[in-house]
């Protein structure tokens, strides 16, 4: 079964914007009740946004892993799971294979995608200088990160369901490319 690419990217965009605004702006009733859900510190806001999006991804990733592996033969080694993640899982979710996979053979993998689907349509306002220069400033990188917390969670969830308990981090310096770092917690 396939899902329209438009609906999934628009839904993800709205979901991220919704979580960001729910953390940074208190809704009317909570303001009156002086609800402690409202967080003032921007650093805390960032952490909570990250946790919310990443947890949602984690839940979905776990369930998807079940769904997507139901007709497969058993994985023999960790590397089979990673291979599954980078080929089948990535293609089903993001429409393509990853572009580069590196490992230190001690439980760390670096996955690079040069044209990552959730970032493909993201673009910042033109600053009027050089149209061909797409460099991001520090503030813009923070905004891009928001759209990567959920995919990070998806990967963490899928790996966890398949038997690798890992931390997943992501870095983007030039959209739409980004680099995920997966560190298995058992490696030490």
């Amino acid at each position: 079964m396939s899902v329209s690419e438009s609906i999934w990217s628009l839904l993800l965009n709205e979901f991220v914007n919704y979580v960001v605004s729910s953390v940074s702006e208190p809704s009317e009733p909570t303001k009156e009740e002086n609800n402690e859900d409202f967080i003032n510190d921007p650093e805390d806001q960032k952490k909570i946004t990250k946790a919310k999006l990443s947890n949602a991804g984690y839940q979905i990733g776990q369930k998807l892993a079940d769904r997507y592996t139901k007709d497969r033969s058993r994985f023999r080694e960790q590397v089979d799971i990673i291979r599954f993640l980078c080929k089948d899982f990535w293609t089903l979710l993001f429409g393509k294979n990853v572009d580069n996979l590196k490992t230190n053979h001690r439980g760390m993998w670096i996955i690079r995608d040069e044209n990552f689907r959730p970032l493909r349509n993201l673009s910042f306002p033109f600053d009027g200088k050089n149209l061909k220069k797409f460099d991001l400033n520090e503030n813009q990188i923070q905004i891009v990160q928001r759209f990567l917390y959920f995919p990070c969670g998806l990967i963490r969830g899928a790996l966890s369901a398949l038997g690798i308990d890992a931390d997943v981090d992501v870095h983007c310096s030039l959209i739409p490319a980004c680099e995920f770092t997966v560190i298995s917690k058992e490696s030490n």
Binding site: N13, N121, L122, S123, P125, L131
Partner: peptide, 26 residues
Amino acid sequence: TNYVMKNPLYEIGQEIKSQKFIYELD
């Protein structure tokens, strides 16, 4: 549709400033 409507930073009714759109259009 791709670089304006699907841009997560664009809200309906705003002026178009997306660099990607301006670049691709040019």
